[in-house]
Structure formats: C-alpha cells, structure tokens
Design a binder for these strands. Structure first.
Length: 538
RNA sequence: UGGGGCGUCGCCAAACGGUAAGGCAGCAGGCUCUGACCCUGCCAUUUGUAGGUUCGAUUCCUACCGCCCCAACCA
C-alpha cells in the first residue's frame, strides 16, 4: 500500500513539470460547486484532488460558488457545501468566492469583446439558435444579426443590461465560427436575459453570464494556475482558451480534465438525488443511505475514510466505475483501528443460567469497561440453532460456546411455544479462566442490566449495480430493504450514555454510529455504518 | 454521422523504450475468547485487435474495433 506516499497521477505530473520549469511558483486550484444541491462522494474526489494538490505544493485552493444561474441556486446549499468541505478536513482560508463577485468585471470584458468585434447581440429566439447551430455533420449558419457594428452591439448590449428587452429575447454571443466542427465554438452564448432574483446580487442584474463565459475568467481573476474539471468539459477547453486569449488576461489558467467518480449501487446525479429527497424515497439530503457527504457523515463515515478512499481510487482520464466495496473496506480498515468494541444483541433470545443465583451480579472486566453478568442474559437469536447445520460454531442443545469476555456456557434446554423458540436454559462453567476449546464465541448482554436501543440497519439504496443505466427509471430499482429498524435490540449498559456521533464496533456485527440527530440522552439510536465481513456463508 | 476523449487482471490503477507495482474483490490455508482483525499462498507469459519500427514495445507508428462526451439562453 502506498497510502503514506504522495498520490501520483497525471495532473500532479503536469504540475510537477510546471513547477520545475518555473512556469508557476505558486500553485492555485479551486473547487467550484454550483450551489444547487448537496455535495456527494463524487465531489469529495474533486475536493480531495484540488485541496490535496494545494496542500502538497504549499499553494492554495479557493472555494468558489459557481452561481451564474440564479434560478437554481439557494443559500441552504451554500451553507451545506461549506460545512461539508470543512468536515472533510479542508480549509480555504480567506479564499471564499462567488462567480457573482465577478459580474462587473465580466460585463466590462464583454464590452471589450464587443468593441473588438468579437461578440455581438443576437435577436434570434432560442428556437432560431437551435435551428441555425447545425448538427454533428452540418455546419451552423450565421445569424442575420452577426455583422452588426460594434457601436450598435454596444448600444444593444447596454440596453439588454438596462432591462429594455424581455427575457430570452436577445443574447450576447461570441463571434467565433459557426462552421467549427467543435460545436462549442459555434458562436456560444455569453449572456442571456433573465429577470431572476440572485441570492448574491439581488435584482441588480437582468442579464446573467453562461458557464463558459464565467468560468475561465473567474479562474483568471483569482489567479488559478490549474483548473481541474471533469471530462465532459474537455470539448469546452478550446472555448475556455479562446475567451482568455481574446480578452487578453495576463494570467492564463490551464484547464485539465479528469474522470468523475462513479460508484456501484448508487448514483451521483445531483438532480436525481434531489428527486429521491423530493419524492420521499429518502428522508432528506442527509439520509444515511444517500451518497451525499452529509449522508455519509450522518451514517457514520469518517472524513479520514473518505479522504483515504479518494487517494486509493486515483485520478485518471478513463471513465470508471468504482465498486462500493472499496469504500466500505476503507472505512472498516480505519474503524477497526479506532472504534471501541461493544456488545449489542440485535434480536434478543433469553438464556437463563440455571447454576447462577437469582440475585447475583458479577461485574466482569472487559478491556475498558465492566460487563454485568446475571442469571438471565440475552444472546443473539441467530447464534442458536436447535438442529445445527454442518459448520455451525455457535450454540445448540448440549453444546458449549464461550460468552465473550465471560464464561463457557452449555445449552441444557430449549423453551418453545409451538415451533417458536421463546428461551433457552443453560449452565456455565464457573471458572472464568476455563480455556478448553469450544465451538465458538458469541456476544451477550445482561437481560435486566442492559439497555434497550434502536438500531437502524442500512443496506445499499439500490438493488442494482448501475441504477438508472439505459432507459430504466432509477426509482424502480430502489432496494426495498435499504433500511430496517430494530426496536428491540439491547446494548451493554456502558453505552447508554454515549454521545451522538460516537462510533463503535458491535462485535461480530458491524460498525455503528450513534445518530447525531435522533439520539437522546440515555437513549441512543445507532446507525449501521457497515457490517463486519462475514465469511460464514449461509 | 463531424469533433473531442478513453481502452493494462472481475473493479480501480502504476509503468514515460529495458522485459506487467499496489489496492479492492475472489480462492486456498494459518491464527483467533469477534466465523472480525491479522498472517501466508494463489490470482495478467500479457496490456482492445491486427500489422509495423526496434536487439527489445503497455510505452513509438499505421489501420481497425469498442466505449464515453458534445446538437441547454445548464453546469
């Protein structure tokens, strides 16, 4: 494993070369989310890349809200984005920005382009634009308004800005090449008229810049050296460069594209995740089944685990689909080393110790805490089989097993109502140090001295590895068993007063986290983060 | 179909002309008061295919095949 080494990937190699050649003395990156939804594990990859690069090269990474489209953006999302990036362990220092901060500069540059005859106001409708853009094989055709004079364009553009024209009636377009094989260069729209209230700029503007017109310029303004984005923007790079070249900024950021993260059994579409929330398939953006940072956090994932996972998946240009098992393994690896152990019986089955006095309680030393042992204890229902199948190493009539941290117990009787097992009887070997080999070790809690607890057993949100693939409606592929709530579970008394957010390994079961929102003093609610590996195939 | 990318083990991913890292998954053992963890071994004679250059090619060249992205006044 190379976890302690600096990650190496093609982007860092480019940066290494830029630093070595003296092209840049300070590396500046940025993470530019659009505040229209919650961040997910895919964003975490980009965050770790951008902030990780800044950290390792002693540069800096800006957090920039890409808020050029006022219709879709909300403060709730801005707040959640900041919280999530911080929680992941990254710090943008003083460098928190909004694309909206640059609207004035962008406007000034637009006038410059108009003055240079490199942009024009087009009166065509959205429909016209679509029709004249051509298609993959057919070149587009020039707008009848393409050759207006700079003076006329300037006048029109200023009137656009002043609010003289109705929404959607005109656009400002870059004058590049309607016949370009790269459709992004067929006179792309720079401004559209849209009377929307903007969270940042209020009603100051009725024209808003498009992504293409805003992004590279924002990078230039901030002195970004390496503008890292996902593969779908690759064809936009010539346009990114064209704008920078033609407005003549002294600073030229370089756009580099990498493959976005895809994870099996979930999905990364902010829009689709929003649908799950809106339609009530999950409780909220931070539902522990969601692949959002907020969801993973609430589920019990640690920032370290997400960062290590992002290091392990690497950064490359090939489209990829990472198996969710890698994420789970990373969490298990870290929590195995960190999480205190505890005993929790999920589905209690009462076992009465016949050779133990009714009122006797012994406090057994179990590593860091005491476990009270009493005449009646609970064991896991699954840990008993009246007619054990081959390979079953747990309790069955006449057989012995070890009670974790405690005694060896032998099952001497089964109480049933009809076919239902309602309780067991057994006898213990009173020697706590008895060391003979027994079938196995099972967990248990005292019946009277354990605490009732609610367990939320989470499973993958979708039943299929690639939800939404092809024509399929992802809603039909939801896993109906993604959440099972166990109300009757019992935990050892020491855990009754754990704090929200505390993580434990419930031995032989899995890693759990006390839910940050629903746990109450004395009554924690535990979320299953990930089960332990189980090689006992049944 | 035009343009832009990408194809190395089931899934990620190194290798930068010198003879295929590592992780995950899987399989087989060992250890064990967690069927967990841990440990050991196995897991690409071969890098989409076919040619070519070279003493030598995953790395260079050619052709072909496959997959992804682009026809929002989204990002």
């Amino acid at each position: 494993m190379t976890d302690n080494l600096r990650p190496t990937n093609f982007i860092r190699q480019i940066i290494d070369a830029d630093v070595a050649s003296g092209k840049h003395s300070l590396v500046v990156t940025r993470f530019p989310p659009e505040p229209n939804g919650y961040l997910h594990i895919g964003h975490a990859k980009s965050i770790c890349l951008n902030f990780g690069v800044a950290r390792d090269y002693q540069g800096r990474c800006h957090l920039r809200m890409d808020d050029t489209n006022p219709a879709k953006e909300e403060q709730e999302f801005v707040d959640s984005i900041r919280a999530d990036v911080r929680w992941l362990g990254f710090d943008w220092g003083e460098h928190a920005y909004h694309a909206a901060d640059y609207f004035d500069q962008l406007y000034a540059w637009a006038e410059k382009l108009i003055g240079d005859g490199k942009a024009y106001v087009d009166d065509q409708s959205l429909d016209d634009l679509r029709r004249t853009r051509g298609d993959f094989t057919t070149p587009g055709t020039n707008s009848p308004f393409r050759d207006r004079s700079p003076e006329q364009n300037l006048d029109l553009f200023r009137r656009m800005r002043a609010g003289e024209f109705r929404d959607g009636s005109r656009t400002l377009r870059a004058k590049i090449d309607m016949a370009s094989p790269n459709q992004n260069l067929r006179d792309p729209v720079m401004y559209r008229i849209r009377r929307e209230h903007h969270d940042r700029t209020g009603d100051e503007w009725c024209i808003y810049p498009t992504y293409d017109w805003a992004h590279g310029q924002s990078d230039a303004i901030e002195g970004i050296t390496h503008s890292l984005c996902t593969l779908e923007f690759e064809a936009h790079r010539p346009l990114y460069d064209w704008f920078l070249e033609n407005i003549g900024t002294p600073h030229r950021p370089r756009q580099i594209e990498f493959a976005r993260l895809n994870l099996t059994y979930t999905m990364m579409s902010k829009r689709h995740l929003g649908t799950l929330v809106q339609e009530g398939h999950v409780s909220s953006w931070d539902d522990p089944r969601m692949p959002t940072i907020a969801g993973l956090r609430r589920r019990g994932y640690t920032p370290e685990a997400i960062r290590l996972f992002c290091d392990r998946i690497g950064v490359a240009k090939a489209d990829s689909m990472v198996e969710v098992e890698l994420l789970e393994n990373t969490l298990r690896e870290l929590l195995n080393a960190q999480a205190p152990r505890a005993l929790c019986v999920h589905r209690p089955l009462k076992l009465t110790i016949e050779n133990w006095d009714q009122d006797k309680t012994v406090e057994i030393d179990a590593d860091t805490r005491k476990l009270p042992f009493t005449k009646e204890i609970f064991i896991e229902h699954d840990d008993f089989m009246e007619a054990p199948e081959k390979g079953f190493k747990r309790l069955s009539p006449g057989k012995e097993v070890r009670l974790r941290h405690a005694y060896i117990v032998k099952c001497t009787g089964v109480d049933k109502t009809g076919n239902e097992i309602t309780g067991l009887r057994g006898t213990i070997d009173p020697d706590p140090n008895a060391s003979r080999k027994v079938g196995g070790t099972i967990h248990w809690v005292s019946a009277p001295l354990s605490a009732p607890v609610t367990l939320r057993l989470y499973d993958r949100l979708f039943r299929v590895p690639h939800p939404g693939a092809g024509e399929t409606d992802f809603r039909t592929q939801l896993n109906p068993h993604s959440l099972e709530v166990l109300e009757g579970a019992r935990i050892e008394p020491a855990l009754r007063d754990c704090k929200p957010g505390d993580r434990f390994q419930f031995e032989r079961k899995g890693y759990y986290c006390a839910d940050a929102k629903d746990s109450r003093p004395g009554a924690p609610v535990f979320n299953l983060i990930v089960p332990l590996r189980d090689t006992w195939k049944k």
